[in-house]
Nucleic acid binder design. Structure first.
Length: 470
RNA sequence: GCUCCCAUCGUCUAGCGGUUAGGACGCGGCCCUCUCAAGGCUGAAACACCGGUUCAAUUCCGGUUGGGAGCGCCA
């Protein structure tokens, strides 16, 4: 296969905000398709809006993609740097008669739209300069360059997700290509850059579907090859409304801080709008093998944190103990105030990790559940634990501790002792285990108690237990 | 207002004319069990509505309703 036959994809965010969940999914789909086909995945920053674009947002996008482990090919293209080339194309269009100068002022156009609105007519440029004799052009007055778009017939987008979408040309107006200050608009820049970058497939949000028709008109005016479009439905918030800052439209880094793993995000986002039969757990290598454009869904999806949690719990269990300990340490370091783990705490964390990770849905939960491992000495009891440690329970615990003198301090041996003790005293194992748990951890729930006794070691365990035993 | 898109359990989805409409998350029950999880079994839960087309519609077509997006010298 030659390079010509390889798809070239791109992710082209505008750096006016954070990389949110919708953008992340768009990036993921493009990336997966490129990796699946052996094509390329390029990154282009659409920073032509110099007023709203910020370096911070550029950094956020890059950091977000890096965290998600979506690597791009080649150098990042900054759209603003290509303004010269965009202008050059506009000049070509002007020369070929496919574009024209429009001298209408902003105020004039506002008035036009107001009138259209009042008359209940569609809001669009009325083409007042389209056929006007250039000789009538006012002297020294700024002008914009507009595309001389076809006014009859229709523009059809053969969308791989939505199917054929038809737009009557008469309902589209002549879009601005160059602003009156000579800078290119988004519409021009996108089409020119996609052509120059050799983009073959454009997978992007549904919100661009209408734009696709206009971009297609431009592509045709230039005689360039048509790209293949795939417009993915947008992701809605849990309440079905558009994603807002209040729910879901968080920077992907917020998901990192909430304790989700990047592999979780890739799996969850993939399933939000793409399917492979009944498969739910699809690790990235498998996703690369399976991904296609045909199975992208057509209807919008909502974010469901419960399912995200479940997916994360799965990947947590699959992750190596050491790696998880590092992630937990990173979460703790991000906390306010920042915390660092002592060497002892880290060793305990790693030893307890097998039973800890089986019980957590997020790294944050995991860190909280491991809290009792991080410092030494008797625990303060939470309400339920205090209630559980009755005088009788304390006495029973004291009696049990007295039987441990020569016991090997392993989970197995300790559990054996507890079972024998329970049987001899007519107790259930739980009646012995729960007071131990309360005294050892300060809580009524924890990973298996005998394993935790082993993790903490004889001295530390006894110090905690004796604080409550009678 | 105009244009475009969408519509299967609460949520994510499978389905591509004939199925007891399947799976997953969540929820209920049971089992397991030192707690909590995990795991196993199990229950409740959906084709928005109305017309066509067809021997037969969740599936194809049209409309209605309901969501969403766009309509800038923003991207």
């Amino acid at each position: 296969m030659t390079d010509i036959a390889k798809p070239v994809l791109r992710f082209a965010p505008s750096p006016t905000g954070m990389l949110h969940i919708g953008g992340a999914r768009t990036a993921l789909f493009n990336w997966l398709f490129a990796r699946h086909t052996g094509g390329k995945f390029l990154l282009r920053i659409e920073d032509t809006d110099r007023e709203r674009s910020t370096p911070e947002a550029v950094a956020a996008i890059i950091n977000g993609l890096k965290w998600l482990e979506l690597d791009w090919d080649g150098e990042i293209v900054f759209q603003a740097a290509r303004a010269g080339r965009h202008r050059e194309v506009a000049e070509q269009l002007l020369a070929s008669g496919n574009a024209y100068r429009c001298y209408a002022t902003a105020a004039e156009l506002d008035e036009m739209r107001a009138a259209q609105r009042a008359a209940g007519k569609p809001l669009r440029y009325d083409g007042r300069w389209r056929d006007r004799d250039p000789l009538e052009a006012p002297e020294g007055v700024p002008f914009v360059v507009r595309l001389r778009a076809p006014q009859t017939g229709e523009t059809i987008i053969h969308d791989v997700v939505q199917g054929d979408v038809r737009f009557a040309n008469e309902q589209m107006d002549d879009m601005v290509l160059l602003r009156s200050d000579g800078t290119p608009t988004y519409m021009l820049a996108v089409v020119v850059d996609d052509f120059d970058m050799g983009i073959t497939h454009i997978i992007r949000g549904d919100d661009h579907l209408n734009n696709a028709a206009r971009q297609m008109q431009l592509i045709k005016a230039m005689g360039w090859p048509e790209v293949i479009y795939g417009h993915v439905p947008l992701i809605h918030g849990p309440d079905g409304a558009k994603l807002s800052k209040r729910h879901g439209a968080l920077a992907v880094e917020a998901y990192r801080d909430m304790g989700y793993l990047p592999e979780t995000m890739r799996n969850y986002l993939l399933r939000l709008g793409w399917s492979h039969g009944n498969d739910e757990i699809i690790p990235t290598p498998q996703a690369i093998e399976w991904f296609n454009l045909e199975n992208i869904g057509k209807s919008p999806a909502r974010l469901d944190f419960k399912k995200l949690d479940n997916t994360n719990a799965h990947y947590l269990r699959e992750t190596a103990d050491m790696a998880l300990a590092d992630r937990v340490a990173a979460i703790l370091a991000q906390a306010t105030p920042p915390r660092t783990l002592s060497q002892t705490a880290r060793e305990r964390l790693i030893k307890a990790m097998p039973s800890l990770k089986e019980r957590a849905r997020t790294l944050v939960e995991l860190a909280a559940a491991a809290e009792f491992l991080f410092s030494d000495g008797p625990r303060s009891l939470d309400e339920a634990a205090a209630k559980l440690l009755t005088e009788a329970a304390k006495a029973s615990m004291g009696a049990f501790l007295a039987t441990l003198a020569d016991t090997e301090w392993t989970a197995h041996a300790l559990e054996d002792k507890a079972r024998v003790f329970a049987e001899q005293n007519g107790l259930k194992l739980g009646q012995v285990a729960q007071p131990l748990r309360a005294a050892l951890t300060g809580h009524t729930t924890s990973p298996p108690i005998f394993a935790m006794l082993e993790v903490l070691g004889r001295d530390e365990s006894l110090s905690r237990l004796r604080a409550y035993a009678i």
